[in-house]
């Protein structure tokens, strides 16, 4: 079976004035359609770099990154990006924020506008369409940010620690929210996080990276990934088992550091 996204022996050097650093040594990852993959690793191991590579903003020093068997590039706009902060534009209303991608791609079609309207309606944001971001709660803003990327109907969603800026209270709700939207819209996603619980409770598969220069250290398929929301999965008896497994892999690496 051909995979949706393929990273083949990806290597990346960072160049600075003082020298070059090998950030990624040898990364090979395959991701299937509608799969939710979480990447965890020691801090500074280059998790975010992998997302930049997938989005086409960075080019690998060697190796290949294929989306639908074609090399990735930023022009396609088929990649959705979510960041730690919602990055909504404060001078635009919710509607205008969500429309940003369509404006960039000069898509003025009624069908796209309708799709956008339906998404906002489905996820309870339509009443806020004329509000400005500062009038919404942090959790709602992150939901708007997700819908903003969904409007472009991306092949793949890149989530760069999108929950780490939220306070503990809202965090679990937003995790459930985002997770259910992604599952409902059948989106392929790559989540980068340092929170093992978040990774195990959200993903179908967790990939553990080594410290820099990063390679894939271990991979865990989460057998209960389809059984409900992340907060429900957290009380699954197997949850702690997998959390421990991932933690051990990560910790082993820290010790040798």
């Amino acid at each position: 079976m051909s995979h949706l996204l393929k990273l083949e022996k990806v290597m990346l050097n960072y160049h600075t004035k003082t020298g070059e650093t090998l950030a990624l040594k040898d990364i090979s990852i395959c991701i299937d359609k509608e799969e939710f993959v979480a990447i965890v690793g020691p801090s500074g191991c280059g998790k975010t770099t992998i997302l930049s590579l997938i989005s086409g903003i960075l080019k690998p020093s060697s190796g290949k990154i294929l989306l639908n068997d074609e090399p990735v590039n930023t022009k396609s706009g088929k990649i959705g990006y979510m960041f730690q902060h919602d990055q909504l534009f404060p001078w635009r209303t919710i509607w205008q924020n969500v429309k940003l991608g369509l404006e960039i791609q000069h898509d003025k079609s009624d069908s796209s506008k309708e799709y956008m309207y339906n998404l906002l309606e489905k996820y309870g944001l339509i009443d806020f369409k004329n509000k400005y971001p500062h009038e919404l709660s942090g959790g709602m803003r992150q939901r708007v940010a997700l819908i903003r990327t969904l409007v472009l109907q991306p092949n793949i969603l890149l989530l760069d620690e999108p929950f780490s800026a939220l306070d503990y209270q809202t965090r679990q709700t937003v995790v459930d929210d985002v997770s259910s939207i992604i599952r409902a819209e059948k989106k392929t996603s790559v989540l980068v996080t340092h929170d093992i619980g978040e990774a195990v409770s959200m993903a179908d598969r967790v990939i553990v990276l080594t410290k820099r220069p990063a390679t894939v250290k271990a991979e865990f398929v989460i057998p209960f990934s389809k059984e409900g929301t992340p907060s429900k999965k957290k009380i699954n008896p197997q949850f702690n088992l997998f959390k421990d497994k991932v933690w051990k892999e990560l910790n082993e690496d820290e010790k040798t550091a």
Binding site: S52, S55, I57, T74, K75, S76, G77, I79, G80, Y81, F83, Q84, H85, Q87, F89, W91, L100, G101, E103, I104, Q105, L152, L158
Partner: peptide, 23 residues
Amino acid sequence: EKILLMRSMGANKFQILWKLILP
């Protein structure tokens, strides 16, 4: 990150200037 967001949506430099930097 806002610039990165626009680039991931396929924005060119002029669009980044007009829709992000100036406002």
